[in-house]
Each structure stands twice: as structure tokens, then as C-alpha cells.
Nucleic acid binder design. Structure first.
Ligand SMILES: [Mn+2]
Ligand SMILES: [Mn+2]
Ligand SMILES: [Mn+2]
Ligand SMILES: [Mn+2]
Lengths: 222, 222
DNA sequence: CTTCAATGTTAGTCTTGCCGAACTTGGGTG
DNA sequence: CACCCAAGTTCGGCAAGACTAACATTGAAG
């Protein structure tokens, strides 16, 4: 099941489709896919058709997009590569967690299976990347924790941060500054629905922190 | 002078043209370039023309190929990337010296300037790669030792291996087996011109070893 | 000085990935 | 229930990189 016969672009599409449903239920649309791939919808639509012709996904015109088992296997392989590389860059080359995503986005297509195996070995077979995302094991099983976004969490008791989206490096630096990282514990003080603000307190601190929707959507807790 | 605006293929052409004259004087031809790029001569010829149009090399039809200062700067950058990556794979990820070339050939186009700098730092600014090839420093100066191929060396006194071509992994494994690696010392017993055999003795061993032209062309000594 | 084979170039075609423009579809809204 | 608009699709075109086939040049041998 090597990934090598697919183009970089095909690998990215599959990975994106797979990750879109990793933390939320709503299936991905052509427009969102195009935005994430930084291409026009017409391009994404074309590409979807080609992937369908290769048997990697199921898609009827104007219908939903769903990976086949073959497509899913490729996607999981790419996710594994991406997250192992991010972890490697932090642990071995001293990168910050806000610097690794773009680097990994390119490297994931370039490293061999051999190199991925050596990195995995060198890191002691990690199960989570620097943002708390689970690293699927070599046999392709993801470990999916049951987590919800901070903005949807009830203000009761202490929760643990399990995952922070790596989409915005500047936001990651802000989170570092205030001590909001995977495994941090915090208490949700208040959810203000129409102000779209979530007030939290990090355990061990007294200070209340107000988070807007961008931040409270990016943080997942249990 | 970042290399990023060039295609992978352009980067490889420039690197190949540069390295062709690193250890020998004869300028590279279109046919040889095509072979090394694993491409047809017509493709190589086309590519040369495009690089000429970009001002990266000088070339009149049917004439010689020569890099401009701009082309040379890009080439040196690629050589630096390639050799730092090979060294990194050996030192940090436990690769054998026969395994690194193909991996580096792909990675060199994918890693960022930042990653190259961190690798260089992590390795303590090495000056030679696992095959003895000099690593140009970040400012682009290559360190060129005055070495000659084993097949052209006179059979007098002890010489030191400075460089072994990494073109053939199987040959590298053979060299490992017999203990012929960069910095090894050896004595040339005899050159048999028309048999194309070079007989050597590695210092510390008594056994004579006969090397054919493939091997004695790949090893450079001082 | 001619010839010719090796070397190099040009022309035409494919594939991939992208675009913009124009068209189709289908789920609300009035 | 008809309409409309956002979402999705199709189409033609372009650039890069590869190929084959045909053509051009060079220089070495006779
Ligand atoms: Mn990432
Ligand atoms: Mn990617
Ligand atoms: Mn190499
Ligand atoms: Mn390369």
C-alpha cells in the first residue's frame, strides 16, 4: 500500500478529506476543499473526479465526498507521515510547535517509507504530535480520543486540553505564551453565546482568560 | 538567493552541471547530462535552453555548457543541501552511507532554508559528507581538495582516500566490506593499463586487492 | 575534402495541475 | 410552486516536463 504512485496533490486531497472528518462530523464540501488546497473550486472538482476514477473516493456530481478503503489507507499513511515529521522537527531539530506544520506539509511527500520508520523508531513510536493530534500507527489505526471543541464545552469542572489545531502559527504562539498547550488543565468559567466568548482559567493560575471564537474553535478538550 | 523559485528539475540540472566539473576538468555534455537525469537527450536539450533563457547558464547550440554566477550560486546551494542531508541521515538517523544518496536526492528539494540551517547546526557545521565530498559552507564557498582518481595515481608510497563516488550503492557496500572508506590509507601496488586493473593494499592489511575500472574510477586519493 | 556516425536540436504530442468563463443543479424563499 | 443564487461542474487554454521521430551539426576517418 505505498503512497508513492500518487501525485503530491492527490496525497494532499486524500489527507484533507480524511482529516476533515477526524474532529467533526460534517462531510467536507468541494468549496472548503478548494480553500484548504488553495486552489479554485473548478480545480478541486476536477481533481475529485480524477481520484474517483482511480477508485480512491466515492462521489456523484453534486453529491458528498467519501473515501473508499483504498483512499482512506493512503490518507492515513499521509496523516501518519505528517504528524511523525512534525514531532521529529520539534524533538530532534528544536523547532517550535508553531513552525512545523508548513515544513511537514512539504516533507511528507518527500521522505521514504524507510525514513518514516527510522524517525518513528528514533522517537520511540509516539502516539501524539506536538499539537495533540493522534499519530496513526504503522498498521493504519488512528487513536481517536472523544474530545469536543472548547466553544461547545459546558462550564463545569476541570477539563484537559487534548488537541489544538495547527492551522494558524500566530495563534499557536499566543497559546504558548499563556500556557495553553496539549495536556494543560483548565476550568471553563463561562460561555457567552452571542458575544462568542469563552472565559477560562488555567489550572494553577488565577487569571481569567477570554477566548474568541477563533481560539475556542481551535482547542479540543475532554 | 533562495532556490525556491526554481523547479526541482532545474535545481537538479544546475547541481549536476556544477558537480560534473568538481572532480574533473572535462565539461559536461548534453548526452551525459541526460543520462544522469535519466531523461532523453531531447528533454535535456530543451531544459538547457530554458535555463539559458533564465540566465542561469551560457550555451550556444552545439556548444559547451557553462554556469553563470547566478546558476552557480543555485547549484552550490543544492550541493550543500544534498551533502548536509546525507550527513544528517547517517549521523542522526543511522543510515548506511550506501543508503543516503537517493533519499537526499529527493529531500534536497523539499527542506526549507531554516531546516538546512538547523541540520548544519545540529551536526556542528561539518565540512565533508559520508562519501568524502566537501560540503560548501553557507556562504557558498566549496573546499576543493586536490585529489585524483585511483586509476590515475602512480604506484608510489601511501595515499589517503578522500572521496568515493556515491553513484552505485552496491559498490559502496563492497567498499565498506573491504574497509575502503574516506580517510583510509592504502598503497598502490600496480597499475595494469590494458587489463584496467589497479592492485592496492590497505594499510594495516597484507592482502592485495584488485580493483577494476568501475571501482578505481570511483575512488579519489591524495 | 568528403563522408558519415555520433551528438545535439526541433517539432509535435501527452499528462498533470492549474486557471477563468460559462454552464448546471438543487435547496431554500417568497 | 416557481424562482434564484450559491455551490458545483464542464470546457478550453496554458505551462512544465516528459516522450518519439525527424532533422541539423560537428568532427574524425578515409
Ligand atoms: Mn500539521
Ligand atoms: Mn502536503
Ligand atoms: Mn549524493
Ligand atoms: Mn534531486
Amino acid at each position: 500500500m505505498p503512497v508513492s504512485d500518487l501525485t503530491n496533490s492527490a496525497q494532499d486531497y486524500l489527507k484533507l478529506i480524511w482529516t476533515a472528518t477526524e474532529w467533526s462530523e460534517t462531510p467536507i464540501t468541494v468549496t472548503v476543499l478548494a480553500e484548504r488546497m488553495r486552489v479554485r473550486p473548478s480545480t478541486a472538482s476536477d481533481s475529485i473526479k480524477k481520484l474517483k476514477d482511480q477508485g480512491l473516493l466515492i462521489h456523484a456530481p453534486y453529491g458528498t465526498i467519501e473515501l473508499t478503503p483504498a483512499g482512506s489507507a493512503h490518507a492515513v499513511d499521509m496523516v501518519r507521515r505528517h504528524r511523525l515529521l512534525e514531532t521529529f522537527l520539534v524533538q530532534v531539530l528544536g523547532y517550535g510547535w508553531d513552525e512545523v506544520h508548513d515544513e511537514a506539509e512539504v516533507l511528507e511527500h518527500a521522505v521514504s517509507d524507510t525514513m518514516i520508520e527510522r524517525i518513528d523508531q528514533r522517537l520511540g513510536r509516539p502516539t501524539r504530535d506536538p499539537h495533540g493530534d493522534p499519530i496513526p500507527s504503522a498498521d493504519g489505526q488512528p487513536h481517536r480520543p472523544g474530545a469536543i471543541q472548547l466553544c461547545h464545552a459546558e462550564p463545569e469542572g476541570e477539563v484537559t486540553v487534548v488537541r489544538i489545531s495547527d492551522a494558524d502559527p500566530a495563534m499557536l504562539r499566543y497559546f504558548s505564551d499563556i500556557g495553553l498547550t496539549p495536556d494543560a488543565k483548565l476550568t471553563i468559567q463561562k460561555q457567552r453565546p452571542y458575544t462568542d466568548t469563552t472565559t477560562i482559567t488555567l489550572s494553577g493560575q488565577q487569571k481569567n482568560i477570554d477566548l474568541g471564537p477563533t481560539a475556542s474553535n481551535a482547542v479540543w478538550v475532554t
